[in-house]
Design a protein around this nucleic acid. Structure first.
Lengths: 337, 337
DNA sequence: TTGATGTTTGTAATCGATTGCACGAATCTA
DNA sequence: TAGATTCGTGCAATCGATTACAAACATCAA
């Protein structure tokens, strides 16, 4: 029925040029008030809608940003996405979602794809297995703003938004100490990711500050899932001097730990304290609610978006901004003797 | 450093026309094999990348689809998004995410916005408060494929992907009956949304099929949260003849119910059976794991994407496809006497 | 040799919006 | 009143890729 209305149609209807219409629509100061209002009125009357493709072609800007995460249906990441969307939508940007499935190759491919789609920026959390950083350099070479959130890689010219994982690890451990536990173990995940390493460092620092010995055997590497947490606890309990508490860098592993402890008749938190990390929704829904560290993911998403918006402002000034948000220790039942 | 390479640059380098280059790149059959390979090689050598904006302007297709949900960080929706992304990404489509916050106005605005952005299709779940359907008609008038998932509105020309909520409600109730409960209540959410109404109908049908009386007082309206579930159970227990089981259309309300029951010393599942709906992740992580109905959200997302792809294929044939997936009853501890 | 057919490439318009430059008219200054 | 400014608008190029149509050339049959 209705064909698309262009500025040429409006121009024809008013006996002016498309240029005039364009200027009127863009509030160009060198247009008379009279024609401006006239154009605006007829534009409304004719149901004019700006063709974004033409604009994009001319300006080179798509008003889209790419967001790359391992999986979108992980609470942490979907909450970050929520924050990004809420911050960027009012500014006229759309958020394009991509998943890497923790696959380095897919990550490279995705980045290339987003560059092809000429997004105005890329916000992302790197995959676990990303080693090669060439694809990021492509992004920088194209002058496309790049912002890492949570999982970062050291790279000049890239801004990042993280939480203070060191402090998170420190506070979790400190809380266990103050709660009366003294032989505190640590379940870590993947030390090649800096977030887990920093949590580990926080753990060690807390031990040191409270004059507790650091015991290498108390540190177990696991995956971020329940089974792996169960295994980790089994291993820890086999030690001659078994620990009486654990700070886990993963909520899922912590859950596995709790389950295993309970099935062995060890009562949590009386005989064994547990603190997780991430504040996954399930941690508060358990009967024995789990203490954990909240990462403020929505806030992190919003902050990432803000950093992107700043970078977009002055393209010449390449600011490399490093924002570090504060984690929040959430004390629940699993660590309260 | 590197300016953008266009087909004109390639053309100049080879002393041919941009038209020839374009045809070669697009595998147009009316080009000689020799020049085709030549063009492809130099294109690679010069690092040519197609400008999607120009293509979009010419073709009117953006290769973007809009996905609109109430919130992205709700497991059900983020899993659907995951499915959509996984299905569409290999086909060269990008997924644009928008949230409505369950706000009808924001939904209208968002739809308009996506149309402006000239997405090739819109996949969505309507907000709770959507009554007016005008904005959807705009979409149809523009011939943009529209696919509803889960929460649908009756609208000619719109495809939909849902699960068989009736069957879900039926099976949940039937399971409670077969487990030995006989006075089964129902906590519903918002009967203006068809999904909840159908679950309610399934509940009634199961009662009828098993010759159990339908008691109006056994049906309580709640919101989809814990507090509301607690309230609902309190109300039910006040009845002269209190129920001994409940099928809740919401996992969250079911959790509230369980908590309230336990705090009153009523043991689940011995004295009271509970079945939820949605298979939220936390339901399996509780010590007293919750029986629930799985909605296969990732599958739903993939199916929605497939329906969209079919619609895109022949634009002339306006197929209105209604796909109904099967829910899966998941029996856990909360309903096993 | 002629004309028909087929293959390959070029020409130029098109998709809409933006913008530097130029031109005419109106206003101001001296 | 002549000349300088200012203001509003039009002209035309531009952003890259696609494609209908035309043109050039080669090939083949009669």
């Amino acid at each position: 029925m209705k064909e698309k209305v262009t500025i040429y149609d409006i121009a024809k209807a008013l006996n002016v040029t498309a240029a005039t219409v364009s200027r009127a629509l863009n509030n160009n100061p060198k247009i008379s008030e009279a024609t401006r209002t006239l154009v605006l009125e007829t534009a409304k009357k004719m149901n004019y809608e700006q063709n974004k493709f033409a604009l994009a072609l001319k300006s080179g800007k798509s008003h889209n940003v790419g967001v790359v995460v391992p999986f979108v249906n992980r609470n942490f990441f979907s909450s970050i996405i929520r924050g990004i969307e809420e911050e960027l939508y009012p500014k006229g940007y759309h958020v394009i979602i991509c998943q890497t499935h923790e696959d380095a190759k897919k990550e490279e491919e995705t980045i290339q794809n987003l560059l092809n789609a000429q997004v105005d920026g890329i916000l992302m959390s790197v995959s676990k297995h990303t080693q090669n950083l060439k694809h990021f350099e492509k992004v920088l070479k194209k002058n496309t703003p790049l912002v890492f959130f949570d999982r970062v890689k050291p790279l000049k010219g890239v801004s990042s938004v993280t939480i203070d994982d060191f402090r998170g690890g420190y506070e979790a451990t400190e809380h266990l100490i103050k709660s009366g536990y003294s032989k505190i173990a640590h379940v870590t995940v993947d030390l090649s990711l800096s977030i887990y390493e920093r949590r580990f460092e926080g753990y060690r620092e807390a031990l040191k500050d409270y004059d507790l010995p650091y015991n290498e055997n108390y540190v177990v590497k696991a995956k971020s899932d329940i089974d792996s947490g169960e295994e980790a606890i089994k291993q820890l309990l086999k030690l001659k001097e078994a620990p009486d508490a654990v700070f886990s860098s993963s909520d899922f592993a912590a859950l596995g730990a709790i389950r295993q402890l309970q099935s062995l008749g060890i009562s949590v938190p009386q005989d064994f304290g547990v603190v997780g990390f991430s504040n996954e929704p399930f941690t508060q829904f358990m009967e024995l609610s789990m203490s954990t560290v909240d990462q403020a993911p929505v806030e992190m998403g919003k902050m990432s978006a803000k950093v992107f918006l700043e970078q977009i402002k002055d393209v010449k000034v390449k600011v490399e901004k490093k924002v570090e948000l504060s984690p929040e220790l959430i004390v629940r039942k699993s660590s309260l003797k």
